[in-house]
Nucleic acid binder design. Structure first.
Length: 487
RNA sequence: GGUCUCGUGGCCGAGAGGCUAGGCACCGGUCUGCAAAACCGUCUACAGCGGUUCGAAUCCGCUCGAGACCUCCA
């Protein structure tokens, strides 16, 4: 597997890039925290899933057998720092006058549709929290047995102080608990917890709760963090390769997952922890609470007033791939326009490669160009560098086309295969073949034929009238050496 | 208030002690009836001020600015 040479992943646990060595030979187990479906995921949410889709795709491209688990949160009692319980799904359900699972189903249908539109590969499995209540209870029991949790009034809390005697709480986020106490802004209503840093594993039911489950501690709901521990363990085992999620989940969610796994099985669930960075709008994180968000569908339909026009999903994907997954990315109209043009340059180059003239030998080093594709992605999935290298390939293709550079048959085949592999399979960009509208196509052929006749007769008035008329209808005619094309 | 991250050319973004990505825009050219498109070429930036070094955008310090987390969050 020469292409896996020096394949490195940035591990949030160590804060360094590490050579990637799977636990089991050629197999990779990857768990990514999915969405809470109380509303439609926004573009920022999608960025994380698109980034992990890139990671999944590249692992597959390198020949790994990957089991990719991404959960759907459809249950869970959440307690904020003020001690107030919030059930966002239940809240949405009451607002929309639906059952909780109806809400989740409704938004899951939309989420699945978005995944298709944005060309995300389906994970191996998308388990739901509500489908794994029993597993969650069993892990809580195990944590209780090990002495790292306690029961109060029908609720179960993780005993952080006890845990800290044996393990390092804060190993991932770098937080020190004694500092945390001072940092926490509000400390009221900590009634049931023994210690402010303790978190709920199981919450006693409230009368207004829409979803309630039975447990050894009475009717209630699982805590937010325990579902991921239960589902990752069930499908990937107690210790697996990669655990991913958005940067904002690092603390407390991922930190608490580690505590739960250590507290029940004695080991950190994942060897590599990966965190994708946020999508920004005007320098600020896109989020529901800031209200600066837009929906992934709005932008491809052009119905958000943030942008003048619609952008295809491909362009958005390409735009996001031009930034590294660990960097924040600013969403602006000019940046999107730049990506759209750049993307069409890339696709034009790719379409041109098939028509290239073959020479006896190549006048440039095709193999090292191809190697640079792998080198980029092997360096912690550096898609921006990959794209830069693909543009270098496009430049060579254009030079070949102009007759300034030569390529051999063998090299042409290599370059074509690898470019297609990286653009389609790794970056997940689908290149829509234009001119495929079944009704429009023959009409356009006729119109362009008439215009060509006019041009041949130097009847510029007619030919320009056709061109301007089509332009008004949104169809751009391009006059090339080998006839005219349109889109 | 605490912890952390980041400030790169007109814009978006990589890089991370010497080899100074890439895209878009601009400008020049080729092509073209004209235009558009396409293609080729040009364009040397790293917040400020100090320091370390033969050499710093990259390391250290300070200042200014932005953001994230500490609450649900992708």
């Amino acid at each position: 597997m020469k292409n896996r040479k020096n394949f490195q992943i940035y591990n949030s646990l160590s804060g360094k890039k590490e050579i990637f060595e799977p636990l089991n030979d050629n197999f990779v187990g990857m768990y990514v925290c999915g969405p809470t479906l109380y509303s439609e995921p926004h573009m920022g949410n999608m960025r994380t899933f698109i980034n992990f889709d890139l990671i999944y795709r590249y692992l597959l491209h390198l020949g790994f057998k990957v089991k990719y688990v991404r959960n759907i949160t459809d249950a869970g009692h959440i307690t904020n720092s003020a001690g107030q319980e919030e059930d966002s799904i239940g809240k949405a359900a009451r607002l929309e006058q639906m059952q909780s699972l109806e809400i989740v189903y409704k938004y899951n249908v939309k989420f699945q549709e978005l995944q298709r539109i944005y060309n995300l590969l389906p994970p191996s499995i998308e388990p739901t929290a509500t489908g794994h209540i029993q597993e969650q209870i069993e892990i809580i029991e195990q944590i209780l047995d090990n002495g790292y949790a306690y029961v109060v009034n029908g609720s179960v809390y993780f005993d952080t102080k006890k845990y800290m005697k044996d393990f390092n709480y804060g190993i991932l986020s770098g937080r020190k608990v004694d500092e945390l106490e001072n940092e926490t802004r509000t400390l009221n209503a900590q009634d049931e917890k023994r210690f402010f840093a303790d978190f709920a594993l199981w919450k006693k039911a409230n009368p207004e709760d829409m979803q309630i489950w039975r447990s050894p501690w009475g009717d209630g709901n699982p805590g937010w963090h325990i579902e991921c521990t239960a589902m990752s363990t069930k499908y990937l085992g107690k210790h697996f390769d990669i655990h991913g999620g958005g940067m904002d989940l690092k603390f407390p969610h991922h930190e608490d997952e580690i505590a739960q796994s250590c507290g029940s099985f004695g080991c950190n669930p994942a060897k590599y922890w990966m965190h994708a960075n946020m999508l920004n709008v005007n320098g600020q994180k896109m989020s529901k609470s800031f209200g600066n968000y837009f929906l992934p569908k709005e932008i491809i339909e052009g119905t958000t007033n943030l942008f003048k026009k619609a952008y295809p999903a491909n362009v958005l994907r390409f735009f996001m791939m031009q930034a590294h997954y660990r960097s924040t990315l600013d969403f602006t109209e000019t940046a999107l326009d730049a990506s759209e043009k750049g993307f069409s340059r890339l696709t034009d180059g790719l379409n041109l490669i098939e028509k290239l003239n073959i020479s006896e030998s190549s006048s440039f080093d095709v193999q090292s160009l191809v190697d640079s594709f792998y080198a980029a992605m092997n360096d912690d999935f550096n898609a921006p560098i990959l794209i830069a290298n693909l543009f270098e390939a496009v430049k060579q293709i254009n030079l070949i086309n102009d007759g300034n550079v030569t390529i051999s048959k063998l090299d042409k085949d290599l370059l074509e295969t690898e470019m297609k592999g990286f653009i389609f399979n790794v970056l997940g960009l689908e290149i829509a073949s234009s001119n495929n509208d079944s009704i429009l196509k023959p009409v356009m052929e006729l119109v362009l034929d008439l215009r060509q006749q006019a041009r041949a007769n130097k009847d510029w008035t007619t030919s320009d009238k056709i061109r301007d008329g089509l332009a008004a209808a949104g169809i751009i005619v391009k006059d090339g050496k080998e006839g005219s094309s349109w889109n």
